[in-house]
Amino acid sequence: MKIIKWVLRVLPFAYMAAIWIMSSLPADHFVKLPDSQIDHFIKESLHLIEFAILYVLLVLAMLTRRHAFTPALNIACAVFAALYGISDEIHQSFYSYRSSSLFDLVKDFTGILVCFYFIRGALFKGKFTRLRKVLGRV
């Protein structure tokens, strides 16, 4: 069980490194679909989940600690994920083959806020009992 806890604690950092590396590469470095409109749509849609995943990984890492996971710590995880999203957009702006936009940030923040809503509801508002049970096992 200790190994799982340490993996959950390291995972957000590994994920942030992966985001940073992928932001330094052309958008079609790993995958390019034959239809450019579908390719663009899918890659733009990933903004909705990319930083939401980071927020969830941060929450899971914090839940492995012995200290209580508080509403303030939950907000801190969401803010950290959002700030990392901002830094990623700034990072991308230095590469001519990448784009950086305010609309991308809105998508990043939307994904974080959706996950924040469910995690906050499960852990602090008595909603989403299944999610609360899953998070309680961490």
Rank of each mutant, 00 (worst) to 15 (best):
I38L: 15
C77W: 04
K127Y: 14
M62G: 12
D104Y: 03
A18E: 13
K32E: 13
C115Y: 04
L11G: 01
T129E: 15
P26E: 09
V31C: 08
A14T: 12
F103G: 05
D88L: 07
K2C: 05
D35N: 15
I112F: 04
L8T: 07
I19P: 00
L73A: 08
L25I: 07
K43W: 02
A122V: 01
Y15G: 10
F13H: 14
M16I: 15
D28N: 14
I75Y: 14
A81P: 02
S36I: 11
R65L: 14
L58Y: 09
W6G: 06
R9C: 03
A61Q: 05
P34L: 13
K43E: 03
L58N: 08
I119G: 05
K125V: 02
D28R: 11
K2L: 14
I42Y: 13
R130Y: 12
I3D: 12
A61L: 02
L102T: 08
V79G: 06
L33R: 11
L25Y: 14
A82R: 01
F51D: 00
L25K: 12
L8P: 04
D88R: 03
I21L: 15
F51G: 00
G85N: 08
L73G: 09
H91F: 09
R130P: 01
Y117A: 08
N74V: 00
V56Q: 02
H40A: 11
F69H: 06
F13M: 11
S99E: 13
M22H: 11
Y95M: 05
Y55K: 03
D88H: 02
L60N: 02
Q37L: 12
K125M: 11
I49L: 09
A72Y: 09
A68H: 03
